[in-house]
C-alpha cells in the first residue's frame, strides 16, 4: 500500500465526514450536495476501476450501468407510487445491483471476445444501445427523463437528499473501497492484474482469464448500479443523459485521473473531477474550454494519476 495515497485518502474521507456537520453549522446544504456527488461518482469509478484499472480493459460504456440502477429506482417508484414492496430499498438496491451485474456479465461475455480498439468500440456501442433503450421508454419520460416519484425507502428512512442520504452514500463508498481493496489483494485480483500484464502467460499457466474478466464486469456493473440508485435519489431525477457516452468517458477520466488500478485512485479522481469542475464553472461560463485540456494535461503529465504522483506502491 502506498502510504502517501492512504494518508490522502484518509484526509479526503475525513473531510467528507466533516462536511456533514460543517454544512449544518454553516447552513451550506450545497456543500453536502457537492460531497454527496463526489461520493456517488467515486462509487461508480470504483466499479469501473475493477475493469479499466485492475483488468486493464478499456471499457467505455459504464455510465449505462449507472443508468440501469437509476432507472430501476425510477421505474419501481413510478410503478409503485412510492408505496409497497417496490418502493422499498431492500428490493430496489438488490434489484438494481443484480440487473446491472447481469447486463454487465452479458456485455462482458460478448465484448471480451475482442481486443483493443474493437473492445473499446463494442463497450461504447453497448452503452449507447442502453442509452437509446432508455430514450425509447416513452412511458418513463423518454428523452426528457422523469422525476423520481418517491425516494427509495428503508423502513421510515428515505434515501432522498439531506444528511441521511449523504451518510448512506459515504457508507456505501467505504464499503466499495474496502471490497475493491480486498478484491485487488485476492487471487481473483491477482489474476486480473496478471492477465492485464500478459494474458497469454496467464492462459499458459491454466487460468481461464475470460471467466475472471466476465466476473469483474458483473461486479463492476453491480457497483455502478448501486451508484445509480444513489444518483437517482440524489438528483430526484432519472434521465438518459446520465448514461450517454460522454458520461462514460467522464467516469473513465476519473479513474485515470485518480490512478487506474489503485485502491484510492477512483476516489481521488472523482473528487478532483467534481471540485475542478466546480471551481472552473464559478470563474467562467466557458469553463469547459479550460477543463478539457487541463484534464488532458494532467493525464499526460501523470500517467499514473494522482496516486501515481504520490509514489505508487503496491496497488496504490
Amino acid at each position: 500500500m502506498n502510504r502517501a495515497a492512504a494518508l490522502l485518502a484518509a484526509a479526503l474521507l475525513a473531510a467528507m465526514i466533516a462536511a456533514a456537520p460543517a454544512a449544518i453549522v454553516l447552513d451550506q446544504p450545497y456543500l453536502l450536495f457537492l460531497f454527496q456527488q463526489i461520493a456517488i461518482l467515486a462509487i461508480a469509478a470504483v466499479g469501473l476501476n475493477l475493469v479499466l484499472g485492475y483488468a486493464g480493459l478499456p471499457a467505455f460504456g459504464h455510465a449505462a450501468f449507472v443508468g440501469i440502477g437509476a432507472y430501476t429506482v425510477g421505474i419501481a417508484a413510478a410503478e409503485s407510487g412510492g408505496t409497497g414492496l417496490l418502493a422499498s430499498g431492500w428490493v430496489q438496491v438488490p434489484l438494481a445491483a443484480v440487473l446491472a451485474a447481469t447486463i454487465g456479465a452479458l456485455i462482458g461475455s460478448v465484448s471480451l471476445r475482442t481486443r483493443g480498439v474493437a473492445f473499446l468500440m463494442i463497450t461504447l456501442a453497448f452503452g449507447q444501445m442502453l442509452y437509446y433503450g432508455a430514450v425509447s421508454l416513452e412511458r418513463y419520460g423518454g428523452d426528457d427523463g422523469m422525476n423520481l416519484v418517491a425516494p427509495t425507502q428503508f423502513g421510515t428512512f428515505a434515501l432522498s437528499r439531506g444528511l441521511g442520504a449523504y451518510v448512506a452514500a459515504l457508507i456505501v463508498l467505504l464499503v466499495a473501497l474496502y471490497v475493491s481493496f480486498r478484491l485487488s489483494r485476492s487471487p481473483f485480483g491477482a489474476v486480473l492484474r496478471g492477465a492485464a500484464a500478459n494474458e497469454r502467460r496467464m492462459l499458459a499457466v491454466g487460468v481461464s482469464v475470460f471467466r475472471y474478466r466476465v466476473t469483474a464486469f458483473a461486479l463492476s456493473g453491480a457497483l455502478c448500479g448501486i451508484a445509480g440508485v444513489l444518483a437517482a435519489n440524489h438528483s430526484g431525477f432519472v434521465s438518459p443523459a446520465s448514461m450517454g457516452w460522454t458520461r462514460s468517458v467522464e467516469l473513465a477520466v476519473m479513474v485515470l485521473l485518480g490512478g487506474a488500478g489503485t485502491t484510492f485512485g477512483p476516489l481521488f479522481g472523482a473528487a478532483a473531477f467534481v471540485l475542478l469542475e466546480e471551481a472552473l464553472s464559478g470563474v467562467s461560463e466557458h469553463w469547459r474550454i479550460v477543463f478539457g485540456p487541463l484534464l488532458l494535461l494532467i493525464v499526460i503529465a501523470a500517467p499514473g494519476g494522482i496516486a501515481g504522483l504520490l509514489g505508487r506502491g503496491r496497488n496504490g
Binding site: 487471487p187 491477482a190 489474476v191 492484474r193 496478471g194 492485464a196 500478459n198 496467464m202 503496491r314
Partner: peptide, 13 residues
C-alpha cells in the same frame, strides 16, 4: 507476472 508480488504470482495460478 512483473506487476504481482511473489505470493500473488503463486496464488493466482
Amino acid at each position: 507476472f512483473p506487476n504481482l508480488t511473489v505470493r500473488e504470482n503463486l496464488d493466482a495460478t
